[in-house]
């Protein structure tokens, strides 16, 4: 039982899309393969005929400023993001999240595109980008369309990508302006290899001691990665003070129904931790924006 029948390495997006659509059996995009290959090997993925390796496509390996956006290609490795001055400057939450995923060897090959395509509810890179107002560039035979990140997820492990026809080309994140900042934190049981027990990302813009605007995302908080809009609403436009933060914590607890993962953490423990995580992450972003 081979894990796949055919392995292709196209050099352009159009070749890649062509390879996907013309496969006689199921075709899958592969970049770092750190999730996908395990899923295939351990029987969690349906049979794959063709693997289309997109890591040789130059466009997908770019990390650069394009006008007022930070562009990160889908196959940029997590280690590159973690150490990129541009990412640290404009998307600090994402740089922080990228540094926490897997171990060094995994981060050398794992990509941001894979992090999103895998569509797990608490993927660190995804949760960070949820707070950064990220647009996803989705390539197909016809065109490249822009999809807001939060519209990418249909369910656990399910994206809005049309399987075998589309691929993620990259991500666009608005450049940071004065008095804006972001932060990402997570809690996990053991460094390096375990999935997070819980993670949270915050972006905000302040004016003096007021939060002008903010975005908060947390995982796992349901089947898909999600923003916690009512907490954002509660904080937006207000002055940071203790009472407000505890109201935000209450709202957050109201919004997220945690579940127990038998091998990771109970709902109760997550409930306890998310309070700390919200306060810590929010204040970190607040300090950075000052």
């Amino acid at each position: 039982m081979k894990l796949w029948q055919e392995y292709l390495r196209p050099n352009s997006i159009s070749e890649a899309v062509q390879a996907l659509t013309s496969s006689p059996g199921q075709a899958c995009v592969i970049a770092g393969g750190t999730d996908l290959l395990l899923d295939i090997q351990q029987g969690r993925h349906s049979n794959v005929h063709t693997l289309v390796d997109i890591t040789s496509i130059p466009e997908l390996n770019q990390l650069e400023v394009r006008r007022d956006l930070l562009y990160i290609g889908a196959t940029v490795s997590l280690n590159r993001i973690a150490s990129s001055p541009l990412a640290i400057e404009h998307a600090q939450a994402l740089a922080e999240a990228s540094r926490l995923i897997g171990g060094p060897q995994v981060r050398n090959v794992a990509t941001l595109g894979g992090n999103v395509a895998h569509a797990l509810p608490a993927a660190d890179g995804t949760i960070a980008m949820m707070s950064l107002d990220t647009q996803v560039l989705v390539a197909s035979q016809e065109n490249i369309r822009e999809v807001p990140l939060q519209k990418m997820f249909l369910g656990a492990g399910k994206t809005a990508l049309s399987t075998g026809k589309e691929l993620i080309a990259g991500f666009c994140i608005p450049l940071r302006k004065k008095n804006q900042a972001s932060a990402f934190k997570r809690i996990m049981r053991s460094q390096g290899i375990a999935l997070p027990i819980i993670n949270l990302s915050a972006w905000l813009q302040r004016e003096g001691d007021r939060i002008v605007d903010l975005r908060i995302a947390a995982g796992p908080a349901g089947a898909t990665p999600r923003r916690i809009a009512s907490v954002e609403d509660l904080l937006r436009g207000n002055t940071i003070k203790d009472g407000l933060i505890s109201d935000a914590v209450c709202e957050l607890l109201d919004q997220i129904q945690f579940r127990t993962s038998p091998q990771r953490a109970t709902a109760e423990y997550r409930h306890h931790l998310v309070k700390l995580l919200l306060v810590d992450t929010l204040l970190e972003a607040w300090d950075r924006a000052g």
Partner: peptide, 23 residues
């Protein structure tokens, strides 16, 4: 290590957490 009715629940090193160099 977790088991239920004789069945091993933590049968991989992603759920049975041995210390890494960071721990």
């Amino acid at each position: 290590y977790l088991s239920k009715d004789g069945r091993v629940l933590t049968d991989q090193l992603s759920t049975y957490l041995i210390p890494t160099v960071l721990d």
